[in-house]
Design a protein around this nucleic acid. Structure first.
Length: 831
RNA sequence: GCGGAAGUGGCGGAAUUGGCAGACGCACAGGACUUAGGAUCCUGUGGCCGCGAGGCCGUGUGGGUUCGACUCCCACCUUCCGCACCA
């Protein structure tokens, strides 16, 4: 037996798997399918530990499912468009395409060296015209149905990316790629996808995902969609025919309104203050408020302030005239940009009222606690209660009043019920080069004209210059820009914005099934056969980005008649982060461990094993060198014990029929341990994915093998072979190369990949004896070993007869006894 | 502020349903083998007291339920994550 040499073993089996095409999933097989998928990686050029962890989890599950008889489809591809390629092009004087393809080649090699079992025949690169032409096709379909539209609006602009960002790509007022760079607001003409059309459905479906999606993600999405039921209410401006429309979810507090507040950007502001005494000063103040960035307002960098316009509006219920203020408390982007201010029952209004000495009018009294007095209030009361001082509604419970007041005002045509969502339509225009061209042209005569479907793809020109300054390089490509109008043949200009790359990743998993299909985005028969995806695996950072977009895309495709399902992903798994020295591994922190070095020095099997052993996969894991070495030690131990005995076991059949009868003691113990291990590992795969405990179980089995050495003396070859086979097959999802090598040493002609998952024999796994803990007054005082079958009464008898226990009981009266079968006896003494 | 997750030896973690707390690994200590050991194998290893048998304490803190609580209930503390003027 030679030493365990991970280099030669891993290379050997990687070649073997490739040559035999062992990871190809026959698309039309009759076996039950299992579609397992990692998030689409961005080809940054280096496989990092986060990727590695993601893929190790998926590959272990894929290999186990495969052994359990499933037709496993486990593809991967490349999120190949995106800004980093463009930045790299400027820095390294290369082309984004060259840079991207080189990175893909390198990362593919890295994946290969880890031995991940992907079906490479499904590979997709989103930067290929063959792929992105379908982005364009989808866009045109959406355009036809009004799901894509163009409008001028205030959008998020990242000065470093030099492009627009979707709301989902803004994190705490900053760019998701540049967390220190505040996002600016710009007024631009942009293309939008109408994700809000599906807001209600996307929200409702979260309940259907309760089984398979993490609670955390569903909650984040629920907040993001942000449904809110309320009413639009009209307030008549005194001395004018203007109406102000407010939005409120608490119409029941309307009698407590002491002001109407307008957002500084509200379109009526200028009109209202025009011509009033002091209007110049008011306008100046409004101007200051308008200058404040959204970020400054949200983070509290600027104070909440406001200014009285000098005008009044009539409360639609009471007719009371209340002052109209302009305040940065109110956001133009949400609701109607105008609100009723009810200091007694809204905390923000309360603080505003205190600051400007507005009255506080209590109109809801709590049911349980003592009545509120406006003068004594320290904060707003926002709970439900009974109405007071509210005209005809006085005395009603607030929930009921809300409905009644809504109805009454609606009947008068002064209010309408409305449901608002926080989610906004998805802005997809990017002023960048390396992305999918948006397939429209601008014609002076015809306006916006979609590129006809048969002219797709609109190919991204490769001959461009990267100056690094200004806007998209596409603006300097006249051959691309100048075109003729598909309608009137006249001169026209192409759209130079490209699509957000989150579009690429919204549907790639459909394309995997037929990556070269050229009459539709995918082959519908294959999609019917393989969808939904059984298991999706990736990090939580995409909770309200990719994971909400993909749900939208499936709905849209359903409405296009392309698929007949609502949900593309039934189960989602979020793996934890990889931590080193107490912080997330990242280049900027300088605590990155290179995956290449890991493979080179310790081997892919060791790296994979450690990744799964260090922590359960959903939790963050700490990467430690010592831990990696421990895992390598374990693989060496496994290697040594099996290699040592393998030569004489090669011809031996592990058939249960050839076991000696009766079994010797060591044989029984070993078989029991092996079958218990198989049961534990199988349970971990089938239920909770806690592979750290699976691996611990296999380690225990190996420890047992060492403890019984020399094995040849007390364990007959058929039994030893059976136990070794089991140990190897159970290890295979975690350390597949080593498993193949040992499997071959044990004389098996076929690959582990062609071998079914080991079956647990419950009879062999059964313990014959168990240890019973004997407690006296809840404290462990002794232990006895008894047969599993011994009835409770006899267990109790033996416990009472135990000398130590008997001594403790002495002559005291026994108040109570508890017997837990196979576990414990508790004797409670009367005190 | 709101919502979520978590808190167990020197460290990573285990305890599937209220029933032996600390599996497995790391680190450390002792031993065997050895010219040597940073290889391998074996043994030990939560804290305190005790020569020992053994005893006491111990799962963030304080209460509670129970024969019995890491596990269930109440209150609180800490950490991480997400959301945060959403009217």
């Amino acid at each position: 037996m030679g030493d365990y040499d991970h280099r030669s073993i891993e290379a050997k089996w990687q070649r073997f798997w490739e040559e035999r095409r062992l990871f190809y999933a026959p698309r039309d097989a009759r076996r039950p399918k299992y579609y397992i998928l990692p998030f689409l990686p961005y080809p940054s050029g280096d496989l990092h530990m986060g990727h590695m962890r993601n893929y190790t989890i998926g590959d272990a599950v894929a290999r186990c499912k495969r052994a359990q008889g499933f037709n496993v489809f486990h593809p991967i591809g490349w999120d190949a468009f995106g800004l980093p390629a463009e930045n790299a092009a400027m820095v390294h004087k290369t082309h984004p395409r060259t840079w991207t393809l080189k990175n893909i080649a390198r990362m593919k090699e890295q994946l290969r060296l880890f031995g991940f079992g992907y079906d490479w025949e499904a590979e997709v690169s989103t930067c290929e015209p063959e792929y992105y032409r379908w982005n364009q096709w989808f866009f045109l379909e959406m355009l036809k149905r009004g799901l894509a539209y163009r409008k001028k609006s205030r959008v998020n602009w990242c000065p470093r990316c030099q492009t627009v960002l979707a709301n989902e790509q803004v994190v705490e007022g900053c760019c998701w790629r540049h967390e220190e760079t505040p996002v600016e607001q710009r007024e631009l003409e942009q293309w939008f996808l109408k994700i809000t059309h599906y807001a209600e459905e996307l929200l409702a479906d979260l309940d259907k995902l309760a089984e398979g999606w993490p609670e955390r993600i569903r909650l984040m999405q629920r907040n993001w969609i942000g449904k809110s039921d309320g009413a639009r209410v009209q307030w008549a401006v005194a001395g004018s025919d203007k109406l102000i429309t407010t939005f409120s979810t608490r119409l029941d507090t309307a009698y407590g309104a002491v002001a109407v507040l307008l957002a500084p950007e509200h379109p009526l502001v200028n009109e209202l203050i025009a011509g009033l005494p002091g209007s110049a000063a008011i306008a100046r103040k409004v101007g200051v408020l308008r200058q404040q960035t959204r970020r400054a307002q949200v983070t509290g960098e600027v104070e909440k302030e406001g200014i009285f316009t000098g005008r009044f509006a009539a409360n639609p219920f009471s007719g009371d005239q209340v002052p109209i203020w302009v305040s940065n408390l109110v956001l133009m982007e949400y609701g109607t940009g105008a609100v009723q201010a009810v200091p007694a029952h809204d905390q923000r209004d309360f603080e505003f009222a205190k600051k400007y000495r507005l009255p506080i009018k209590v109109v809801i009294q709590p049911l349980a606690t003592k009545p509120l007095a406006a003068s004594a209030m320290q904060q707003a009361f926002t709970g439900p209660g009974r109405l007071v001082d509210s005209g005809p509604y006085t005395g009603m419970p607030s929930e009921k009043a809300l409905e009644k007041m809504m109805d009454d005002l609606a009947r008068k045509g002064r209010a309408e019920p409305v449901t608002l969502y926080r989610i906004k339509d998805w802005g997809i225009s990017r002023q960048r080069y390396w992305g999918t061209p948006i397939p429209v042209v601008y014609c002076n005569a015809c306006g916006i004209v979609p590129v006809p479907e048969e002219q797709l793809p609109v190919v991204l020109p490769l001959e461009v210059e990267f100056t690094g300054v200004g806007l998209s390089p596409l603006l300097n490509v006249p051959e691309f820009i100048n075109t003729s109008c598909p309608k009137c043949r006249g001169k026209a200009r192409r759209e130079t914005d490209t699509m957000d790359t989150f579009i690429d990743s919204s549907w790639y998993f459909y394309r995997y099934l037929s990556p070269h299909h050229d009459t539709a985005p995918f082959d519908p028969d294959l999609v019917r056969r393989w969808f939904p995806i059984d298991q999706y695996i990736g990090g939580a950072e995409h909770a309200v980005l990719h994971l909400i977009y993909l749900r939208f895309w499936t709905k849209m495709m359903r409405d296009l008649g392309l698929v007949d399902h609502d949900l593309a992903v039934t189960r989602l798994f979020n793996q934890g982060m990889v931590i080193k020295d107490g912080a997330k591994m990242s280049k900027s922190r300088g605590n990155v461990v290179s995956t290449d070095e890991m493979v080179e020095k310790y081997g892919a099997d060791t790296a994979r094993l450690f990744t799964l052993f260090a922590a359960p996969p959903e939790k963050d894991m700490e990467w430690t060198q010592a831990g990696v070495e421990g895992c390598q030690r374990f693989l060496q131990r496994l290697w040594r014990v099996i290699s040592k005995h393998a030569p004489r076991l090669r011809p031996v059949s592990p058939n249960p029929a050839s076991r000696p009868s009766p079994l010797g003691e060591d044989e029984r113990d070993l078989l029991r341990k092996a079958h218990q291990t198989a049961r534990r590992v199988t349970t971990d795969f089938d239920s909770r994915w806690h592979f750290n405990t699976s691996i611990a179980a296999i380690m225990e089995l190996v420890n047992e093998l060492y403890a019984l050495e020399p094995l040849e003396e007390t364990v007959s070859p058929p039994v030893l072979k059976e136990v070794f086979d089991m140990a190897v097959l159970l290890t295979a999802p975690f350390a597949p190369h080593l498993a193949e090598e040992l499997w071959q040493q044990l004389g098996h002609p076929q690959s582990v990949l062609e071998t079914p998952w080991p079956q647990t024999d419950p009879e062999l796994a059964r313990e014959e004896e168990c240890e019973i803990v004997i407690q006296v007054n809840g404290r462990v005082r002794s232990r006895i070993r008894v047969s599993e079958e011994l009835p409770d009464s006899e267990v109790l008898e033996q416990a009472l007869a135990d000398p130590r226990v008997a001594g403790l009981i002495n002559s005291q009266r026994i108040a109570k006894t508890v017997v837990v079968p196979k576990k414990l006896v508790n004797i409670v003494l009367a005190s």
